[in-house]
Amino acid sequence: MIFGRPTPQIVDHDQPQLVMPCYHRIFGDPMDRDFPGAQVAYFAMGCFWGAEKLFWQTDGVLSTAAGYMGGSNRNPTYEETCTGLTGHAETVRVVFDPSKVSYRQLLAVFLENHDPTQGDRQGNDVGSQYRSALFTTSEEQAAAARDALAEFGPKLAVAGYGPITTTVEPAPQWYWAEDYHQQYLDRVPNGYCPVHATGVTCG
């Protein structure tokens, strides 16, 4: 039982990706568009609505999307992910121009705008889908992520926070979230998705 409800049956969806990419509401491009010379990074930092907005507002970012990563099922739905049984984390896909913004600068956005010490939660959002994780696409990203966490941990400790729980993992399969989640806070400007910043900065 989960919260008094029958445990839902979680299945692998063998069909192709359930959600096809659409046009980005902010940038106007197809969300699966290739950008020559661009790089891709994946950030899980709690509710993906607010996290995606942070990144689409960052100079040098070319595209963003909400999706699911890090679980055991293929083509998870939002409802399945929210049970915590699939193991997926709400994740933001960020396509960026490395000549205008570095991965290290994107890591600062990530670290400064959530609490990376809370384990499977962000504030009142509780569950493994809200965990803090960095899904890296290269060894260079993985090294930068580990270095940033090592530098940020002592700063959090001085401010009274516990150990960082953020995981650094090679990027697994990416699954697009349903269309209504994409750029949600542009569709619903007053939608609920608070940023759980600690006030600790990377600078």
Rank of each mutant, 00 (worst) to 15 (best):
L54E: 04
Y42I: 11
D97S: 09
D29Y: 15
K155V: 11
P30G: 05
P154V: 13
C47D: 10
C82S: 15
I26P: 06
V126G: 05
S102A: 12
S102N: 12
H114E: 09
N75R: 14
P36S: 08
Y130A: 02
R33D: 00
Q118K: 09
E80D: 15
A41Y: 11
S63P: 04
Q57Y: 04
A150L: 04
W56G: 05
R121G: 00
L85W: 12
N124G: 07
E139T: 15
A157Q: 15
L156W: 09
A148G: 08
W49D: 10
F110N: 02
G87A: 12
L106P: 01
Q118M: 09
H24S: 04
T137G: 00
Q57H: 13
A144M: 08
N75A: 15
A150Q: 12
C47Y: 11
G153K: 05
R146T: 15
A66M: 07
P154W: 13
E140N: 04
F55G: 04
P30M: 11
G127I: 10
G119F: 01
I26H: 07
T81F: 03
T64H: 06
E52W: 08
A148W: 02
S63G: 05
A41K: 03
E90T: 07
A142N: 10
Q39D: 06
Q57S: 11
G71C: 09
K100C: 05
D147L: 07
A51G: 08
V109S: 03
S99H: 11
F55A: 02
R93A: 00
G37L: 02
T86G: 10
T86C: 00
V95P: 01
L62G: 06
D59W: 05
V126E: 04
A38P: 01
T91D: 08
S63I: 09
R121I: 01
E140A: 15
D34P: 00
G37R: 13
D59V: 11
G50P: 08
R74L: 14
Y78H: 14
T58C: 02
L62R: 07
N75G: 13
S72G: 15
A144S: 13
E140P: 00
H24G: 10
Y23M: 07
A65R: 09
R25F: 07
P30E: 12
D97Y: 12
V92R: 00
F110M: 09
F152M: 04
A41L: 04
E139C: 06
N124K: 05
Y78V: 15
S128R: 12
F96S: 07
F48R: 05
A157E: 15
